[in-house]
Design a protein around this nucleic acid. Structure first.
Length: 892
RNA sequence: GGGAGUAUAGCUCAGUUGGUUCAGAGCGUCUGCCUUACAAGCAGAAGGUCAUUGGUUCGAACCCAAUUACUCCCACCA
């Protein structure tokens, strides 16, 4: 038979993926089996596969394939996310390249381009997932903006609004005065910039008299009166000042409590407020408060009921509140106001100062914090329920340490701002109209419905639906993602449909820990609100894939390998295995291409094991030998033992451990031991019974490995035996652990050690593996595997002896002495040295044991079992020491 | 600034309720082998003061405290 000695994944992977698709093996329909559902964390629709996806989706595939083989109705639903911010940014950039400015387009025109873009690049990432072997039910592929998902999102918005859980409020946004739009936090780039820190004088209001002795503190005075000094980097914003704040425990300013100061150059008297927010060390410890132009100031303004004075126009020029500076650009104003204040003697000093200033990623303009009306979801009750189900382990986190992070966030949660100043996304279904010069709002599923509501509320005010003005903003992308596990099965629009009842709740969510708040927490909230049930039972947090220097993978660093190229190089199975081996849950993965080599080598190892087995000539006449019978028995038991461990690992989501154990079971136990044990001598046949047993074992080993390495296992499974048309390993039963005899396994461990001892002896003495040696054993030794020892150690005969053998090399396994007579001269010096070292070690060991046993507190305090073990150790050590001493004496 | 986490062999990680000499695995390294499935392989070996310092205990890699270093998340420095 001619089978290539190297496994070639390329043909195999193509072949089996098409086969699986063709036989509809990934597709799921509700039936009477138990469901096992995973919903994919939807990747950005215009994204391309990176290493993070590889890891995440490999894990999902492992779990879903295993569930399928365990007899569940496994359903893995794929889909993509419209990702408002990043997709819109990409479309804007694309338009710019074509010489089109977004501002010149209408909303409709822009969206047309955006959909065009989506059609062109959307879903590339899903195609790439197929290369990885992902067993998604592709018939169910969804998009967060397709019809079902769109309607679900809008319905939820309307519903929450009607329940009073959605409201409109004020919030500080990052305003780009050049693009005339708000930009997201992610689009703000903080740059170091060299500016000045201006120290301004705020005089106390006329008539204010401070008590004696306050001069040496923060309060100064000159001919014009008493004043305090406030430091600022943005002197132009004093036009919007409505307070000055100091720390309540700052002794320099205690006298100021309840007093007022005058904003320099503006003449407005503002109150002094006291709050612990102020950093006493910074500047003079006094802070000017401009609620309209700084988020912290805004919060303080809310807390103390301060007036909010917005001094800017949208384009960054001063408005009428800017007094004589109205119409000037904000930076020109800064220069002018400094000049004017200096002239008026209101500036104490100016220092150089370096700080970080936010710039717009799109236009590079300096970001202006600006108050604006936004939509919010009330988090109170939703958060409470979401916290509860994680605290009481209805939902389990793996690893559990993320519960802490989760708790902290939910306990300090703020309302969720869900409006975004974007076009690409779900447009907010709020409609505005005017009644007596006042703007009124209705929220409805669509314009017609809105019109109907308006007619009820204010009959005759609005003539037609077209007159209603719909909100220009789109919803935060997470406002659609949080419904994903429900909306995928149409559970929002049709809450009682068969699919949602069957597939929901899903089983496990696999995601990265950095979106625990954005996504995980909110899905839990939505699940509680709309299904009254958690969306998943387990959350498996993957690590972040880094390069081998520990840096995050990023495009700009160019340190992210192309997963598709990796698959080309090492095969999908190799890459999958490489990723999983170094990826315990929640740990970051320092990724190095070379770890995929181990996976590739393993594929090859299995391939060659198959080659070996398939090239044996099978004899029907030959009786199974005793040794072969024992070998089969041992392998079966060993497999049962490891399976037990693997099952436990899966229960605890220790996937790397489970894979490593499977790896060693196949490579070490099966290939290195079992196959060597039963391998017939060259040119001789193997008996049928052993052969069939071996095929059976091989078959089950492939099933164990299948979730990790789907392609190579399918290929080999088909090679091992004739399979009916349409058969596939992916729908075979996963082997279960069965009873095994621990004694027999322990005996074999001893056998292994004896064989290793003999081999080691050869190695260290330069004896050829071809030279047959004899073995004499003094002490306990299982005879069951003697034939195996002879075969694998190339031992001629094994004899049990009562006394030590003169002139032989020796080694000890526990308290058992093994002697190997050799023809060559024994190097007495070296032997003595080795024996003395062992003796020294054994005596040291005995000493520690004796110390323990001599300690009354130990003997009385420790459990009996532990003491008994110590006594046994003492006895073993003593007999070992006696044996070693005897050997040393014999040599010397 | 607030919160969370990590520290064990050259690298990546196990180590379950404190109790066997418990200090482990894989990779890498070194030595010897082209042995008839596989050199993408086979047979062996070496490698660690369990970050540091104290404490609790008969007994600590494990529990407690402090220190040091690193990582992540959130908020952002007037």
């Amino acid at each position: 038979m001619s089978i290539a000695s190297k496994y070639d994944p390329h043909v195999v992977e193509e072949k089996w993926y098409s086969y699986w698709l063709e036989k509809k093996l990934f597709h799921s329909e509700p039936d009477n089996r138990k469901s096992y559902t995973i919903v994919i964390p939807p990747p950005n629709v215009t994204g391309v596969l990176h290493m993070g996806h590889m890891l995440n989706n490999t894990i999902q595939d492992v779990l879903i394939r295993r569930a399928r083989m365990l007899g569940f109705n496994a359903c893995w639903v794929p889909g993509t996310d419209h990702a408002s911010i990043s997709t819109e940014a990409k479309v804007v950039a694309m338009l710019k390249e074509r010489g089109i400015d977004k501002r010149d387009l209408s909303r409709e025109q822009f969206l047309e381009y955006a959909w065009e873009w989506k059609e062109k690049y959307g879903g590339i990432i899903l195609k790439q997932l197929r290369k990885l072997g992902a067993s998604c039910d592709w018939d169910r592929t969804s998009f967060t903006m397709d019809e079902v998902r769109y309607e679900s999102v809008i319905r939820v918005f309307v519903d929450l609004y009607n329940k009073g859980l959605i409201y409109r409020g004020v919030r500080m946004v990052n305003w780009d005065p050049q693009a005339l739009t708000a930009v997201s936090d992610e689009e703000v780039i903080y740059k170091e910039s060299h500016g000045k820190l201006f120290y301004l004088r705020y005089y106390l209001s006329q008539g204010t008299v401070l008590p004696e002795g306050s001069e040496e503190s923060g309060i100064k005075s000159d001919e014009k009166g008493q004043y305090i000094v406030v430091a600022t980097t943005r002197p132009e914003t004093i036009l919007g000042d409505t307070a000055v704040c100091v720390h309540p425990e700052d002794s320099r300013y205690t006298a100021l409590k309840g007093k007022q100061v005058v904003v320099p150059g503006v003449g407005r008297a503002v109150q002094i407020i006291m709050d612990e927010y102020v950093d006493r060390e910074f500047g003079t410890g006094a802070l000017k408060i401009t609620p309209a132009h700084d988020i912290n100031d805004y919060n303080l303004g809310m807390k103390y009921g301060l007036e909010t004075i917005d001094i800017f126009n949208d384009n960054g020029t001063l408005n009428e509140k800017g007094l004589q500076y109205a119409g000037m650009d904000r930076f020109a104003c800064r220069k002018q106001i400094v000049k004017d204040l200096e002239a008026a003697g209101l500036i104490e000093k100016i220092e150089d100062y370096t700080n970080k200033v936010g710039h717009s990623e799109r236009t590079d303009a300096v970001i202006e914090p600006k108050l604006s009306a936004q939509w919010f979801v009330r988090m109170g009750d939703l958060a409470k329920k979401a916290l509860e189900v994680v605290e009481n382990d209805t939902i389990q986190f793996h690893p559990a340490k993320f519960k802490n992070t989760y708790r902290h966030w939910l306990e300090n949660i703020k309302d969720w701002c869900i409006s975004r100043q974007l076009w690409w996304g779900h447009r907010i279904p709020a409609y505005y109209y005017d009644v007596d010069g006042k703007v009124e709002t209705v929220v409805a599923l669509n314009r017609e419905e809105a019109f109907r509501l308006v007619c009820e509320k204010h009959p005759g005010v609005v003539k037609s639906a077209d007159e209603l003005r719909q909100d220009e903003d789109a919803l935060d992308t997470w406002f659609s993602s949080w419904l994903w596990p429900i909306s995928l099965f149409d559970g929002i629009r049709n809450p009682d449909n068969e699919e949602i009842k069957y597939y929901y709740p899903t089983e496990t969510l696999i995601t990265a820990p950095d979106i625990i708040f954005f996504w995980v927490a909110r899905m839990i909230m939505a699940g509680e609100e709309y299904r009254n049930e958690v969306p998943f039972r387990h959350v498996y947090f993957t690590g972040i894939v880094r390069d081998k220097l520990g840096r995050k993978m990023s495009k700009s660093l160019g340190n992210s390998p192309d997963p598709i190229e990796l698959i080309e190089k090492f095969g999908a199975d190799g890459v999958r295995m490489g990723m999983l081996l170094t990826a315990p849950a929640g740990n970051d993965i320092p990724f190095d291409e070379s770890i995929c080599e181990q996976g590739r080598n393993f594929s090859n190892k299995i391939w060659n094991a198959m080659r070996l087995v398939k090239c044996w000539e099978v004899s029907d006449e030959l009786q199974q030998s005793y040794d072969n019978g024992v070998s089969v028995q041992w392998m079966e038991m060993r497999m049962a033992q490891v399976l037990e461990e693997i099952e436990k690992d899966f229960d605890e989501f220790r996937l790397s451990e489970a894979l490593m154990k499977s790896y060693k079971l196949v490579w070490d136990d099966f290939c290195s031991w079992y196959l060597e044990m039963i391998k017939p001598a060259y040119g001789t046949p193997i008996d049928r019974e052993t052969y069939e047993a071996t095929i059976g074992i091989f078959d089950r080993l492939m099933r164990i490995l299948h979730p990790f390495m789907p392609f190579v296992t399918e290929e080999i499974w088909h090679t091992l035996a004739e399979r009916p048309e349409g058969a596939s390993i992916m729908v075979q039963h996963m082997p279960h652990s069965v009873f095994y005899d621990q004694r027999m396994l322990d005996d074999f461990e001893m056998t292994r050690e004896i064989i290793a001892g003999v081999r080691n002896l050869r190695n260290s003495k330069g004896l050829s593996p071809k030279e047959v040696l004899d073995l004499y054993v003094k002490g306990q030794c299982p005879a069951m595997f003697n034939g195996i020892i002879c075969k694998l150690g190339n031992v001629g005969k094994i004899e049990s002896v009562a006394d030590k053998v003169e002139g032989a090399l020796s080694f000890m396994i526990g308290t058992t002495e093994c002697f190997v007579p050799v023809s060559l001269n024994i190097d007495k010096e070296a032997e003595l040295k080795k024996l003395n070292e062992e003796l020294k070690y054994a005596e040291g060991f005995l000493a520690t044991v004796m110390k323990k046993l001599g300690n009354e507190k130990f003997v009385n305090g420790a459990p009996e079992k532990v003491v008994a073990i110590e006594r046994q150790k003492k006895a073993d050590a003593e007999s070992k020491i006696a044996a070693l001493k005897a050997q040393i004496e014999a040599l010397g």
